[in-house]
Amino acid sequence: MIAILIRDMRLAMRAGGGFGLGLAFFLIVVVLVPFGVGPQSAILAEIAPGILWVGALLACLLSLDRIFALDFEDGSLDLLATAPIPLEGVVAMKALAHWLTTGLPLTIAAPFLAVLLHMPQNGFVWLVITLATGTPALSFIGTFGAALTVGLKRGGLLLSLLVLPLYVPTLIFGAEALHRGMAGLDATTPLLMLAGITTGVIALLPFVAAATIRINLR
């Protein structure tokens, strides 16, 4: 199973693999917002947590259709489905690879972009904590969405339509925990809920996604 993780990471890093695209997209979204909203630092600081969370979420969404679509096109998915590794494990490893190449870099880059939005410095720790807790959920939920649309030629738009509603709770709890943490309030509840969602989807969704892929392959 480690082989799958290594292969997916390698593919993402090599030419055309899309690594860095999500990161660049995140940067551009964050840069565009002040152009739309205006340069007043008070307003930007106010909306920074939301912008950073929504930006990270969209950047995550951008690369979801790569998780299975390429493997489906070149026949690898058929071969993986008949391999001795359980398909659930394949799915979990692919989701993990997606997080390592998307969610993790986003989390690390977020504080630097937060500077552009005049986010107060005491928020940086909370920004990293909430993104690190929440982005794995985005990858695993997204993997389920990618599994649903794997057989479709132009599934990207449908994938967004299916996945975005599923992202709502993660976004709400993530941004809320960040808001509260920054304001010096007690952020335990939203943070625990966020962690709960993440652990829940990591535990359950690979099974659902694997079943979905089997349906799509037959």
Binding site: I2, A3, R7, R10, G17, D71, D74, G75, S76
Partner: peptide, 24 residues
């Protein structure tokens, strides 16, 4: 099962492609 499609990754080398399946 060997399908019409070979399940190859174009950005991996021949050996890497084969090693991956061997590990699987």
């Amino acid at each position: 099962y060997g399908a019409h499609a070979d399940g190859l990754k174009s950005t991996l080398t021949v050996a890497e492609n084969l090693e991956f399946w061997a590990q699987v």
